[in-house]
Design a protein around this nucleic acid. Structure first.
Lengths: 143, 143
DNA sequence: CGCGTTTTCTTGAACGAGTCAAGAAAACGC
DNA sequence: GCGTTTTCTTGACTCGTTCAAGAAAACGCG
């Protein structure tokens, strides 16, 4: 993802193009599932003076515009990713918190339809698989 | 759920039986999906002097023992429920945060198997449906 | 029942992700 | 360029949750 590509995305979404925003969007592309603090760090490598608030604001604007997606498994801080609109899910390591992408199990439908929606108008189904990543799984098996 | 029933559950799980714990367990049974502050309030109706820390500790012990389940949709504080071990999921209102139970879509299997687990050893699949509850849906349709 | 050990509870401080607010600076349409 | 609108900087602050130390309660055992 080049900065000019990010610029295109921002304009396309009707957002003003600012240096913090392009840098944040670049960072989310570069580091999928990064938390806000990591994103602040990545942004500051190219733009040392950005305030944390600018990053928070940018992430909120980008999320609102649908350019990034915010995920937040229980017990984790907010994380962001740029893979959007493809109905993928996540697997989270209970031990170290690592996150990996998972495509929807059976095509796209089954997880999206509740058996009884209690009258709710459902627009999204979010699936989080919990378990252990390969490294933690190996580590715990060895003792 | 009577207090003596809660006592049974605690003993069965190998936990010491204390007044805060039975009260917390009762409260979680009485108010499904309640957050910690609501549980503190409910517990204090019968036990006015409990500290908030005792409630936090009790909830942690009960969660650890598998007597209650902790859920925490993005943007929400921690919530607890006593319906456990039946693989049910939740639907959350984007507008007011209301939560309702949802049985798993197709029997029990489909949501539990990732198509590609990236080497993770998965032990649970958590599904959160996002949408609007009947009340908020009606309210937003009217304007 | 009483005792000692272990766990839990009380009290109060602290942490940290995230938010709020006011003014300065930057973006963008004209 | 210019003016309006949005965004960014700075810094304080909120609030759910956790940490820590000592007091109190639970429970196994004699």
């Amino acid at each position: 993802m080049t900065t000019s590509g990010s610029e295109q995305l921002l304009r396309g979404a009707g957002l003003r193009v600012t240096r913090p925003r392009t840098a944040v969007l670049d960072a989310v592309h570069a580091f999928p599932h990064a938390d806000t603090e990591s994103i602040i760090g990545a942004v500051r490598r190219g733009l040392p003076e950005v305030s944390h608030q600018a990053v928070y604001d940018s992430l909120a604007a980008l999320t609102e515009a649908g350019l990034v997606r915010r995920i937040q498994p229980s017990g984790s801080v907010a994380r962001y990713e740029s893979r959007i609109n493809d109905n993928h899910h996540h697997v989270v390591c209970r031990t170290c918190g690592a996150i990996a992408d998972v495509d929807c199990a059976v095509g796209h439908a089954p997880c999206l339809t509740a058996s009884d929606d209690s009258g709710f108008r459902i627009d999204e189904a979010e699936v989080i698989y919990w378990g252990q990543c390969p490294a933690c799984s190996t580590a715990s098996a060895q003792q």
